[in-house]
Simulated assay, not measured.
Amino acid sequence: MKAFVLTDTAGPDSAVVRDEPRPVLTAGCVRVALKAASLNHRELWISRGLYPGMKLPCVMGADGAGVVTEVAEGVDPALVGQEVVLYPGDGWGDNRRFPARSFAMLGMPLPGTIAEEICVPATTVFAKPAHLSFEQTAALPTAGITAWRGLTERAALQSGETLLVTGVGGGVATFALIFGRALGAAVYVTSGSDATLARAAALGAAAGFNYREPGWRKALQEASRGLDVVFDGAPAAGLAEYSRALRAGARVVIYGSTGGPTMTMAAPDLFLRHVTVSGTAMGDLVDFTAMLAFITAHRLEPVIDRTFTIDQSREALLYLENGHAFGKVVIAI
């Protein structure tokens, strides 16, 4: 079968599209003919060896959607022919608060989704939302579940609250904007691009602020009249700026470290306002089930920046690194 395989850790150019053996169907698993996959910045980090537990060579990609074509003995045969989306990992464990040490994701160390076929546990395939195409569905898993868990489990975002999403335009942040609006929050966003802020406004952002402009923090505070929740993938750059805009009892959820691993905040802004700061990454099967139900109920659609073919997978990865603008980069298979 055709697959996008990482063979070395010298960067995106280390990955090649080549023929690979068909995956072996093992007990408890299903075979899925993949129709689409999507990229995350995780693939860029992996291509440079900047991820724990590196295991090469490996088929890349954590996100995928397709059709079940075969099931192992003992698995419900009614799954054959079903259009599905894949939960992007396996082995979260019983504690919903954090994954077990054995938790692993597709696309390294587990075989990934940028391939013509994949075999995964039957417990990790879910019905594709009927209103979405395969390409749209493939955009959901990793970015969608990260945003969903961060807003609902970590922040407990409520209708009528104010939400700041930093660095809008990336996959996770864009989902946070979409989910935040559907949950009934007034969503404010930041970006270094006025064009990106205009795209966010078209998706329903209450207001956007260019963090390259002086005084953006004061303008944010005046417009929002205080923030209840912040969803931040680049706290090194923004935390000290927006901390004065936090309301009493605010919740700050950190899901990334773009811009550097070190973040600073004045301690009084934290304890005098009774602010909670927490981290989040990915989510479990309960989160995934709830996210898909919410997307279906509200008929939400992800934003797709650009779609490539599987033969253009390396080009797609380079585009994610150098040309990505707003939303998800998808690979049609």
Rank of each mutant, 00 (worst) to 15 (best):
A15S: 12
Y211K: 05
T307Q: 03
Q312F: 10
P235V: 10
T309A: 12
L220A: 03
L163R: 09
F209P: 03
R22T: 10
T196V: 14
W92G: 01
I145H: 06
Y319I: 07
A173F: 04
T7K: 15
M105Q: 12
L285F: 05
V75N: 02
I46N: 06
F134M: 08
R149T: 02
V30F: 09
C29T: 15
K218R: 13
F294K: 03
G74Q: 09
D90K: 10
V165G: 06
P129W: 00
D228N: 15
A104M: 13
E315G: 00
R48I: 07
L239G: 03
W92F: 04
G171D: 04
I304N: 06
G249D: 07
G279R: 05
G61Y: 01
M282F: 12
Q82W: 04
V120P: 00
A130S: 15
A195H: 12
A186C: 04
A78E: 14
L6Q: 10
A100V: 07
Y87V: 06
F231N: 07
A138V: 12
V253L: 02
V277W: 08
F231D: 03
A155M: 09
G144M: 10
E241Q: 12
T137N: 00
N40D: 11
A10V: 12
R212K: 15
H324G: 06
T124L: 07
D8L: 10
P235D: 10
A195Y: 05
A3R: 04
K328I: 01
G204K: 08
A240D: 13
T146Q: 07
A332W: 00
A3M: 02
A293Y: 00
L300T: 03
R225I: 00
G107R: 01
A72D: 08
D194M: 01
P141L: 08
S133E: 05
V277M: 15
F209N: 00
T142H: 11
A78N: 13
K35E: 15
R199N: 10
Y211D: 00
E241M: 07
V253M: 02
F179D: 01
N40C: 12
L270Y: 14
A223M: 00
M265V: 15
V80I: 15
D311K: 08
R247F: 03
P88Y: 04
R97W: 09
R299A: 15
E301Q: 11
A297K: 14
G64A: 03
M105Y: 08
T264W: 07
A202C: 09
T162L: 09
G53T: 05
R42D: 02
Q82S: 14
C58E: 07
H131G: 10
V168I: 15
V30A: 09
L140P: 06
T162Y: 07
D284T: 09
G89T: 02
R306W: 05
S191R: 01
D63M: 06
R18A: 14
R199C: 13
G256E: 04
L300R: 00
L140V: 13
S191N: 04
V120L: 03
V168Y: 04
Y319D: 06
A176H: 00
F98D: 04
P57W: 01
A290E: 13
S257K: 11
A219E: 11
M263F: 15
P23K: 11
D94E: 13
T258A: 14
S224Q: 10
G107H: 04
S38V: 02
